[in-house]
């Protein structure tokens, strides 16, 4: 019943992001080859694949974080709501406000918990006064399931939290700019199982509002949290489809080998 429900939802969601024929080069190294992927709105999409297959690189294309790497060159078309994000008129600053990102290692700023979350709204001018800002901070911390743990020490430094709490703080920080897409680059790789479970629960919850793209090493995690899965291998997208279909009935032999543990 639950599966059924999910599939219908997936089917009715419009495309949030369309990527066509994307190529990425690091210097002479051709890291991403001919990638076509459509990301649906209000859906969790998982990118899986062996290390070095390009899944993180492709993720970073989606909010142009690759711009910060001098040797990196991106070709092809990536559209968000029909707008080419590599258009010269696009300001990456605005793009990134719309497409938020959570990183592999928790990276809270060396500021208070409050200031960490308030950072995005402040720089983008999303709130008019302190009261509004307080409200945003509280609601984001609540959504990140962190409010109960930190409400009494909002002025403590973000770095004083535990690893799992730090990562949830980073998620709270990312959703505070009210993005439309949330990119997560192996968000649980530095966390213990309990913290991982909390973050996964949170991701499932976030789906109601955002389109979430998650890169993960763990196939179980992909199976648990995502509705759609793309399998990356050597820079190519080998297979992309419903998560249940990828895991139960892969079409490509390489996907099957990976899922059964023969490559990776």
């Amino acid at each position: 019943m639950k599966d059924m429900n999910m599939e219908t939802r997936v089917l009715i969601q419009p495309n949030k992001i369309e990527a066509r024929n994307v190529q990425v080069y690091y210097g002479d190294n051709h890291a991403i080859k001919d990638v076509d992927v459509d990301i649906l709105d209000k859906t969790v999409t998982a990118f899986i694949g062996p290390s070095g297959c390009g899944k993180s690189t492709f993720l970073r294309c989606l909010n142009r974080m690759n711009d910060t790497i001098a040797s990196c060159r991106v070709e092809g078309l990536i559209k968000i709501e029909g707008e080419d994000i590599n258009d010269p008129r696009v300001d990456p600053v605005q793009l990134r406000a719309k497409v938020g990102m959570v990183f592999q290692k928790p990276n809270p700023f060396p500021k208070s918990i409050y200031d960490n979350v308030a950072y995005g709204p402040k720089i983008h001018g999303l709130t008019k006064n302190k009261a509004e800002l307080d409200e945003v901070v509280e609601s984001c911390l609540r959504r990140a399931a962190l409010w109960g743990e930190v409400k009494d020490r909002l002025s403590a430094p973000g770095t004083s939290l535990s690893g799992g709490q730090q990562q949830r703080l980073c998620i709270a920080r990312a959703i505070a700019t009210s993005p439309e897409v949330l990119l997560m680059d192996e968000p649980c790789s530095a966390l213990d199982p309990i913290a991982t479970a909390q973050v996964e629960e949170l991701i499932d919850d976030l789906r109601s509002q955002f389109s979430v793209v998650i890169v993960t090493h763990s196939m179980q995690q992909a199976a648990r949290v995502s509705q759609r899965t793309a399998f990356f291998h050597l820079g190519y997208v080998v297979e992309y489809g419903e998560t249940s279909q990828i895991f139960t009935n892969p079409k490509d032999p390489r996907t099957e080998s990976y899922i059964t543990g023969r490559i990776g």
């Binding site: 605005q94 809270p108 720089i123």
Partner: peptide, 22 residues
Amino acid sequence: PQSLRDGSLGLGATPSETVRKV
């Protein structure tokens, strides 16, 4: 650490905001 810069840029901060505030 670069991760702090990435965190800030990933939230849509400009490089100068990243420098001054993070």
